[in-house]
Simulated scan of single mutants.
Amino acid sequence: MSLLTVKDLGKSFGGVKAVDGISFELAAGELLALIGPNGAGKSTTFNMVNGQLKADRGSISLDGQELIGQKPRSIWRLGVGRTFQIAETFQSLSVVENVQMALLSHDQKIYAMWRRAADYRRQDALALLDQVGMLAQADRPCSELAYGDVKRVELSIAMANSPKLLLMDEPTAGMAPRERNALMALTKKLVTERGMAVLFTEHSMDVVFAYADRMIVLARGRLIAAGKPLEIRDHPKVQEVYFGSGKTFEKAGTKLGGA
Rank of each mutant, 00 (worst) to 15 (best):
residue 91 Q to K: 13
residue 196 M to R: 04
residue 77 R to M: 12
residue 135 L to I: 10
residue 148 G to C: 04
residue 5 T to L: 09
residue 90 F to W: 10
residue 128 L to W: 07
residue 71 K to D: 09
residue 105 S to G: 15
residue 198 V to S: 07
residue 91 Q to E: 12
residue 87 A to I: 08
residue 37 P to Y: 01
residue 148 G to H: 04
residue 212 A to Y: 00
residue 167 L to Q: 04
residue 198 V to P: 07
residue 52 Q to N: 10
residue 151 K to F: 07
residue 175 M to S: 04
residue 126 L to Q: 12
residue 117 A to Q: 11
residue 219 A to D: 15
residue 173 A to H: 07
residue 98 N to P: 09
residue 228 K to C: 07
residue 108 Q to G: 08
residue 197 A to P: 03
residue 97 E to G: 05
residue 174 G to Y: 07
residue 144 E to K: 05
residue 155 L to S: 06
residue 72 P to V: 08
residue 90 F to E: 00
residue 119 D to F: 06
residue 207 V to L: 05
residue 216 I to F: 00
residue 69 G to F: 01
residue 193 E to Q: 09
residue 130 D to M: 04
residue 246 G to Y: 06
residue 124 D to P: 05
residue 175 M to D: 02
residue 145 L to C: 10
residue 101 M to D: 08
residue 146 A to H: 11
residue 78 L to R: 13
residue 68 I to R: 01
residue 253 G to V: 10
residue 38 N to F: 04
residue 15 G to V: 06
residue 162 S to K: 12
residue 13 F to N: 08
residue 201 T to W: 01
residue 151 K to W: 07
residue 43 S to T: 15
residue 29 G to N: 00
residue 207 V to T: 09
residue 122 R to F: 01
residue 117 A to M: 13
residue 74 S to G: 12
residue 215 M to N: 09
residue 198 V to C: 10
residue 170 E to T: 11
residue 167 L to N: 02
residue 190 L to A: 03
residue 30 E to N: 00
residue 250 E to V: 14
residue 24 F to E: 06
residue 173 A to D: 05
residue 109 K to F: 06
residue 200 F to M: 14
residue 93 L to I: 00
residue 2 S to F: 02
residue 166 L to N: 06
residue 169 D to Q: 09
residue 109 K to M: 14
residue 200 F to L: 15
residue 226 A to E: 15
residue 145 L to N: 07
residue 208 V to C: 02
residue 40 A to F: 06
residue 254 T to E: 00
residue 34 L to A: 00
residue 136 A to L: 11
residue 156 S to T: 12
residue 249 F to A: 06
residue 65 Q to C: 09
residue 69 G to D: 00
residue 191 V to C: 05
residue 52 Q to E: 09
residue 33 A to L: 05
residue 259 A to G: 12
residue 213 D to T: 06
residue 58 G to K: 05
residue 112 A to C: 11
residue 5 T to C: 11
residue 12 S to Y: 10
residue 253 G to F: 10
residue 224 I to R: 03
residue 5 T to K: 15
residue 17 K to R: 15
residue 194 R to I: 02
residue 165 L to N: 05
residue 207 V to G: 05
residue 97 E to N: 12
residue 110 I to A: 15
residue 137 Q to R: 14
residue 180 R to K: 15
